[in-house]
Design a binder for these strands. Structure first.
Lengths: 350, 350
DNA sequence: CTGTTAGCGCTTTCAT
DNA sequence: ATGAAAGCGCTAACAG
């Protein structure tokens, strides 16, 4: 393996000079610099980042620990992170936590052991975040609000997004609107449920507690929750589902049972899915600005690394309701009105 | 930062003993070991993997450089890699090459500089593979066969899979079968096209050269290629698309133009897509054993690391044709036979 | 079984 | 502007 000493010998300078050329911090004589560069080429020299990291006591790697690489939500998020990281001179390594606490723990341990420069994590709980911050690791939480820890966080307006989606179903004339949400311990599940409840109350409806199901944010869970709702004494005529994978499961269940969407049951999901436009009926969703979420998280991490003492902050980004087919009854279908004041044509008439 | 020397001092032993306890290679007195472990806990000691790597001249990190994190093909592939890696004591970091040569180059450089233990890469060309192997890095190529380099490789039977898919369309009575394939420089695109051609010849058909389009393996490219095919003097009544994203694009184009699938145009894609069952019509695909591909690649890498001198080998896994709706005409539809004996109605009439 | 010692390759004072 | 020298934290001979 060629080292800076090999380069130094060939270029007839000292190792320090080679190092200076390599890093460009202090200035060196142009002639010497040229000789050094030539020697590097001749020897096919490759800097050893491990040695550099050991000496400098820091690396230029970020760990991005996401909960499910299979969830398209994370795809463009990662792209947003990468773009900012690159501008700031960091490389991003992705770690697939896979919603598995052991795996997550292993990756956190690795990030700590490898002395990575920072961590962006979509946390399943506060424990790992604490381990990281206590070890002095710069951390940004993304997507989920860890409970009771002061950490930079990037979120979307979950409550508001859920309100909008639910209000849209109300306006569409659906009367018995269910909600399939995620685990109680995950902030997004709680907040999206709250938005659903607030929207119903705001419309003067009562919240039908028997129309709420807690599932696991996975496709299967969404399927089972939907089946359970359909088995109720008084089944729903619409459902708001709080993440993309569960929405897929719910739709599948409806298709399997022959329940027509959106005529007999309207559906709105949180999180877009790719090819939402190809699914029949195409899915109405609350879309998140995933790329910008990634950029925001990366920016926070950059600042945190530059200034470890600064106070933790939370950035909240806005969602967008994308109305497609699954939540809009075709004209002429029977359906009620949002509130009792209005008679006449239903709002969705067309 | 606490080091083994701090631990050694508290445990009243030498640093070597701490190191031995840490690594478990040689044996130490149980009493001393217990004291060391206690001291580690007391001090909240965290081993420094950077220093260890420098000393040992190797790390326990694998870089997995994939061409598109957004392509679901890679999701379970990565899971297969991770599972094997963990058994072998390695951690996997994912690098999103994003079909961008610059990005790929940066990640290869980083893997080299960080002295990672090995690299699994889905290569866009032979150049980067060469850089890696020349630097002595253990490498496994996945999904694509790099041209003219001796490197461990994991592939699927692209030719055979494409033959099966095309033969299925032939058997279904489609008469004018088109093919949308990927860039000529990518082996999978070439091989899948070849399978298509061979299947047609085997069925006694001529290969309609004007029914072949080269696109870019992306959704947009598939859309445009399909549009181009539909604009032909004599449009196709079926199409075989050589990857999942382009299949989505092609279907979208057909939907937009009101071409009924599978009645007026049958579709089979290579690569499964998630939620293929939700798309209407559901997509017939040539499914790859993605998880096993990952496992196979990881096994090859483990062997290569253990024995750098061994000859390079190629593992080929089998694909499975999954027939769903998009390639099967409903009963009662007119449709021809695989060979020309029957005249009568054109296949696409309806 | 345990301790002493010498680096792994690099950066960074500190002199010059 | 350049070089000499120390040391980041750890492991692996080697000697005892």
């Amino acid at each position: 393996m060629t080292t800076i000493y090999d380069v130094a010998r060939v270029a007839e300078v000292s190792a320090s000079t080679v190092s200076r050329v390599l890093n460009g911090h202090s200035s060196v004589d142009p002639d010497l610099a040229a000789r050094v560069r030539q020697a590097m080429l001749d020897l096919d020299y490759r800097p050893n980042a491990v040695a550099r990291s050991l000496r400098r006591q820091r690396t230029s790697l970020w760990a991005v620990i996401i909960s499910d690489i299979g969830n398209p939500f994370f795809t463009s998020l990662v792209r947003g992170i990468e773009d900012v990281a690159q501008e700031a001179g960091f490389s991003v390594v992705l770690c697939n936590g896979d919603e598995d606490p052991d795996k997550e723990t292993r990756y956190v341990t690795a990030a700590l052991a490898e002395r990575m420069a920072g961590v962006i994590i979509s946390p399943s709980g506060p424990a790992l975040i604490n381990r990281l911050t206590e070890a002095g690791m710069p951390v940004v939480a993304i997507d989920r609000q860890p409970h009771g820890v002061a950490v930079d966080t990037v979120l979307v307006d979950n409550v508001h997004g859920a309100e909008t989606a639910t209000a849209h179903l109300v306006d569409g004339g659906y009367r018995r609107i269910a909600c399939i949400t995620g685990p109680r311990r995950i902030s997004t599940a709680v907040q999206r449920l709250r938005g659903y409840q607030q929207a119903l109350r705001a419309a003067g409806r009562s919240v039908p507690e028997d129309m709420v199901r807690y599932a696991d944010f996975r496709e299967d869970g969404g399927y089972r929750a939907m089946a359970s709702l359909l088995g109720a004494a008084e089944p729903p005529d619409a459902v708001f589902v709080t993440n993309n994978l569960m929405t897929v499961g719910a739709i599948k269940c409806l298709v399997d049972r022959g329940v027509a969407v959106p005529a007999r049951c309207g559906v709105v999901g949180f999180d877009d899915i790719p090819w939402a436009h190809l699914v029949r009926p195409s899915l109405s969703t609350v879309a998140q600005p995933t790329y910008d979420l990634g950029r925001a998280a990366a920016s926070l991490l950059t600042e945190r690394i530059a200034n470890p003492a600064k106070a933790a902050s939370t950035v909240t980004l806005r969602t967008t309701l994308r109305v497609r087919e699954s939540s809009v009854r075709p004209p002429g279908e029977p359906g009620g009105q949002p509130t009792a004041e209005r008679g006449g044509l239903p709002a969705r008439a067309r």
